[in-house]
Simulated assay, not measured.
Amino acid sequence: MNKTTPKGPKKDPELESPVSADPQKSKRLLSIDALRGFDMLLIAGGGTFLVLLKGKTGIAALDWVANQLTHPAWNGFTFYDFIFPLFLFIAGVSLTFSLNKGRSLGLSKATLYRKTFIRMLILILLGILYKNAPITFFEPQQIRLGSVLGRIGLATFVSTLLFLNLDFTKRLLTGLGILLLYYAALYLIPVPGYGAGDLSIEGNLVGWFDRTFLPGRLLQGNYDELGLLTQFPALCLTLFGTLAGEILGRAWLDHRKIKYLAIAGIAVGLLWSLHFPINKHLWTSSFILLTTGMAFLFLLIFYLIIDVWKIRKWAFFFQVIGLNSLTVYFAYSFINFNYTSEKLFGGLYAPLPEGWQEVFQAFGAFLLVWIFLYILYRLKIFVKV
């Protein structure tokens, strides 16, 4: 990981994006960084603030939003389940522009493979650090190997291999094939003591595979939702993201193709869920198709508003977050913004009831995060891998 102070806006920390910090001076797409920033907003304190409002305002709509920002216990779906899949999808969109730029500069496939592979290793190591700090070096069995960053790194590496060797249709079919094989595996491979087709918390194939082959600590005890087998359906989100990136890059905007893929993903995902439940813990194939369809729609909406209709001022708030997504992800782990919020703003909300104090403390913490990222933006400092 390195830190740069470029003369002009550089690429974002997660994956190179077709977005410029100054859209008037670039043909790159502002909408993708804005969409990434919207996604990171819910990770960077915005979600916490809204969840803490639940039951305090008497406004049913706010309570509904708060309920959408928590994960279901097992089967089911809320908007919060969409956050990480959307990030994986955006990684694929950005990857398309990054690889096309590399090829236009004359970089060989081997060079692009090597760069993405090294990046994958760095993200895996950073993910282990993030999930385990302080790392229990003398108790390796307590170290969790599964991580968000590791999953992003692996998904982008595999998607790089497929993007550089398969066309649009073959990549689409490859992704669908992976989802079908994953579905077949969970229903046909018997789990010792439970048999085949058991999708319960205790008896599913994913959990048995993690308990048997994944060293270290499993987050949920008997399985880890960022474990081994779930890598396969998860990488399909990034692979499908490359399809969206190719549509934007080659056709500028193909309404029909994006619309058809979005509708198909949502419709098939919902229909498939009648037999194969939507489940983020297992990253079921129905869950992948549903979130892929939603991601296509969100990308289309952001693109139309920001890059086609040129309604951009509102997007700056999200862009500041999206250009330093890796920074904000790590900042929340290593910097206690809640403590600073209490020290700076505690006197303002001290007269309020205790339940409201935590709401304003969370809001103050998020405000500090955004100011921190804005300062980096103004200094043109963007942390990337």
Score class of each variant (00 low, 15 high):
24 Q>H: 14
321 I>P: 03
360 F>C: 00
37 G>D: 00
58 G>S: 12
268 V>L: 15
311 I>D: 00
184 A>R: 12
330 F>R: 03
349 Y>V: 14
352 L>S: 09
163 F>P: 00
270 L>K: 01
294 M>H: 01
259 K>H: 07
328 V>S: 06
211 R>S: 05
80 Y>E: 14
294 M>S: 07
234 A>D: 08
370 W>L: 14
211 R>F: 01
120 M>E: 03
287 F>V: 03
202 E>G: 03
280 K>E: 14
279 N>S: 12
171 R>N: 00
175 G>Y: 05
156 T>I: 13
203 G>N: 02
234 A>W: 08
226 L>P: 00
361 Q>D: 05
282 L>P: 02
115 K>A: 10
70 T>F: 10
281 H>Q: 12
99 L>Y: 06
179 L>P: 13
30 L>W: 13
343 K>F: 14
105 L>G: 05
86 L>K: 00
307 D>Q: 11
240 F>S: 02
4 T>M: 09
275 H>R: 08
52 L>C: 06
305 I>L: 10
92 G>L: 08
265 G>H: 10
229 L>F: 08
74 W>C: 11
215 P>I: 02
324 N>D: 14
121 L>H: 02
358 E>R: 01
318 F>C: 09
251 A>G: 04
307 D>A: 07
89 F>C: 03
103 R>L: 14
363 F>I: 02
15 L>A: 07
195 G>W: 07
364 G>Q: 04
258 I>H: 10
61 A>P: 07
283 W>M: 07
169 T>R: 06
274 L>F: 15
344 L>F: 13
224 D>G: 03
336 N>Y: 15
19 V>Y: 12
103 R>Q: 13
105 L>Y: 09
67 N>P: 00
34 A>Y: 07
183 Y>C: 13
270 L>E: 10
1 M>R: 13
339 Y>H: 15
154 L>N: 02
181 L>Y: 13
116 T>M: 13
179 L>D: 11
342 E>Q: 15
172 L>F: 08
108 S>H: 05
77 F>L: 15
24 Q>D: 15
182 Y>I: 11
109 K>T: 12
240 F>T: 00
34 A>F: 10
159 S>C: 09
147 S>K: 06
290 L>R: 00
307 D>K: 09
380 K>M: 08
340 T>A: 14
94 S>R: 05
236 C>E: 09
122 I>T: 10
93 V>A: 04
199 L>C: 07
120 M>G: 06
265 G>E: 07
32 I>V: 15
217 R>H: 12
309 W>R: 06
24 Q>K: 15
272 W>H: 12
375 I>V: 15
117 F>W: 11
89 F>R: 00
65 V>A: 14
98 S>H: 09
45 G>V: 04
166 L>G: 02
341 S>N: 11
183 Y>E: 11
211 R>G: 01
58 G>Q: 12
265 G>S: 13
102 G>I: 04
225 E>W: 00
185 A>T: 11
377 Y>G: 10
338 N>I: 11
243 L>K: 02
168 F>Y: 05
328 V>W: 01
94 S>E: 01
337 F>M: 09
189 I>Q: 03
327 T>I: 08
382 F>M: 09
45 G>R: 05
174 T>Y: 06
47 G>M: 10
